[in-house]
Design a binder for these strands. Structure first.
Lengths: 194, 194
DNA sequence: CCTACCGATCGGTAGG
DNA sequence: CCTACCGATCGGTAGG
């Protein structure tokens, strides 16, 4: 049994951790090498540039969220169940992949114009799944017809994206209850109360 | 009429803008000098260190929010009016001081342990004003007795803090309607519906 | 506030 | 993946 060689995936994963913790500009290639037990210069056997690493981590974040949305949409035809699945899926992504998520949410601005634009487009696409679901819920009569859908969507995603900033997995609130609390808050805020 | 000399306040204000835009580690003292039309080394006539600048900007952010909370509490005895004033005040701080707010919210982690701890304490103090107001609203019968107060508080602040991330002052939504939309969302989510 | 620097560190390369 | 570097840039200082 031998220690496995360092792979590109190892490098990308470690980069995600450090970028999330110290920021892209706060992380040097030598820091990253140290994290993996090798020299900074050795990383260039696996990647073309530091920005290449940021691109890879951010792309993972984008993909995780998009896959989660796709699964939520596939899980039910019913808007309220879909919305709940979107919420649960988002929380799962945040809690299961904190490094990628934090880098995706906070460090994408370090990308230069073109790449940053593409990330913003992916976020918009993800957001549009929430918007469409809320719109369906209104059509359905479950959600309040008076809602401003784009704003309601932003508020829901604000709550979901902030989870990364405060949630402590070792705290008293477990994942199930966190999802339940968010879902209940959202339903109360958006529902058509009879 | 002469061009005013650069003051320490000018330097701190420019630092806030650049830290907000590119991040603390993404901003060099030479960048900052250029912004003010002087050399990076000249900044040391006004400040002791780069971190000194971050401390100053972050302290401004903390103070703006605390002053806003104090004013909101003083504005009314009635919990629902207070909550509305807290929301309006928070939005005002975010929209009137975007650079300080963004630096306060996103770059404080670049401070080292001791200073960072003190900032977290100031945030907790600010958050506790929201918590107390929501608790009063429950006691009052205006807000739902079933609420998890700390979580409800986090959700409200998540929405408020995210405003910095998406709101475009040049967009179609003016400040009054933004505040109204957030307040309505929050009231719907937290209220005791009869 | 500028000039002229300092040592340290940065992202990255050549060659093995 | 390491060794030995490169030029550029970093935060900061001395002296005026």
């Amino acid at each position: 049994m031998t220690t496995a060689r360092t792979t590109r995936d190892d490098v990308v994963a470690a980069a995600g951790r450090l970028f999330a913790e110290r920021g892209y500009h706060g992380t040097s290639m030598r820091d990253l090498g140290r994290e993996l037990g090798l020299y900074g210069s050795s990383l260039y056997a696996h990647v073309d540039s530091k920005e290449d690493l940021l691109v890879a981590v951010v792309a993972q974040g984008a993909e995780l969220f998009q896959n989660s949305a796709d699964a939520a949409v596939a899980s039910s035809e019913q808007p309220m169940e879909r919305l709940r699945a979107l919420i649960a899926g988002h929380v799962d992504v945040v809690l299961d992949h904190p490094a990628e998520v934090r880098t995706y949410l906070n460090e994408a601005r370090a990308l230069d114009t073109d790449l940053r634009r593409r990330i913003i487009e992916r976020r918009d696409r993800y957001e549009s799944v929430f918007r469409a679901t809320i719109t369906d819920g209104i059509r359905n009569g479950d959600l309040a017809a008076t809602l401003d859908v784009p704003l309601a969507t932003i508020f829901v995603l604000s709550i979901l994206n902030a989870v990364e900033r405060w949630y402590d997995p070792k705290g008293r609130l477990d994942r199930t209850r966190l999802v339940e609390a968010i879902a209940e808050h959202v339903m109360r805020a958006l529902s058509h109360h009879v």
